[in-house]
Computed example of a mutant assay.
Amino acid sequence: MKLNLDDLHLFVLTVQHGGISAAAKQHSLQRSKVSRRLQELEKALGCQLLIRTTRQIELTENGRLLYQQVNQQLTEVVQAAKLLSNQQKSLQGVLRVAVPAALITSNMFAQLLESYLEQFPDVLLEVLHCQESIDLKRENVDIQILPNGVEVQNEDYVQQTLLRFPSTLVASDEYLQSHPQINQLSDLAKHTLMVSRYNQASLPDNLTLRLCSDDLRLIQHMATTAKGVALLPTILIKDALKSGELSQVLVNEPLPEIKLTLIYPSKQFLPEKTRALITLLRDSFTESKIN
């Protein structure tokens, strides 16, 4: 026996509205369609549920028994479906975002979140510190941002490349004045180097790394306090360069870029609060907007 839940729902509506025509009119359906689906339901159950007359319908004993059993449950199912649908469309509730430490410490990312919270005051943002790819659905996370080099756990997830962030070699003037000059990349062999794990592989193998961290602010602090030469995203150190806290090294040397990837489970069932943040991320970090 194959039962169609839509047919059961039509049966309940027909009883509640006192007739096929009334139920069809109330829910913008064709009367013939409602009548046909009720016949299919009776066929599937193998018994008559309604006695049809010219002006109204009457329940058979089997029909009365079925109505008593399914009325409340189906009503609750429909209400639950409406609740879920409204929740998907609303701009409220919890939005969980997983980002690496490098992005958490970025002023640009902080300003983006401030803008989102100002626009959507009914959304609670939960920002998680996460360095590796996670299963978003199992972990109940809406969006993840990952740097290049980190393999995405689920290839079925939507992946959007954000802007590439060029890197710059920097050091404090105090450090540069007390150490050998740096005129070419090979000269870095005589210096203390500090990098993130996202760009360390891009440097020559013969260089010695003294500090490797996911915390870009830590690397910047160490460079500012004359502890060595740091390789950092240019966007992170613009203010430090402008103030003179740090100076560029090997300005004309092509250096690696950090690429960020935006990841979310599906376009088809995207809640509006998630879509809004994705739009803001794309507007801020890419040259294209969400479709």
Rank of each mutant, 00 (worst) to 15 (best):
N4I: 05
D6P: 00
D6R: 10
H9G: 05
H9A: 12
T14R: 01
T14K: 01
H17K: 11
G18C: 07
A23W: 08
H27L: 05
S28Y: 12
S28K: 14
S28A: 13
Q39F: 03
L41N: 01
A44Q: 07
L45Q: 04
G46P: 07
C47M: 11
L49A: 11
I51L: 15
R55L: 12
E58Y: 15
T60H: 03
R64I: 02
Y67G: 00
Y67H: 07
Q72H: 10
Q73N: 03
Q73C: 00
Q73R: 04
V78D: 01
N86R: 15
N86P: 01
L91N: 11
V99R: 06
A102Y: 08
A102L: 15
T105D: 10
S106C: 04
A110S: 10
A110F: 04
L112V: 05
E114Q: 14
F120N: 07
L124Q: 14
E126S: 11
D135H: 12
D135L: 13
L136R: 12
K137P: 00
V141E: 11
D142G: 04
I143Y: 12
N148A: 15
E151W: 01
D156E: 12
Y157P: 00
Y157Q: 05
T168Y: 10
T168F: 09
A171W: 11
A171V: 07
A171H: 09
D173L: 14
E174A: 08
I182H: 07
L185C: 04
S186V: 11
D187I: 08
H191K: 07
V195H: 05
A201H: 13
S202Y: 14
L209K: 12
L211G: 03
C212M: 14
C212H: 02
S213T: 11
R217F: 05
L218M: 10
L218A: 05
G228T: 10
V229M: 08
P233T: 07
T234S: 10
L236E: 13
K238R: 12
D239R: 04
D239T: 05
L241K: 01
L241W: 05
S243A: 09
G244L: 06
L250H: 07
E253S: 12
P254I: 08
P256Y: 12
L262H: 09
P265I: 03
K267S: 06
L270F: 03
T274N: 03
A276T: 04
L277R: 02
T279A: 09
L280P: 06
L281S: 04
R282C: 13
R282D: 00
S284A: 09
S284K: 05
T286Q: 06
E287F: 00
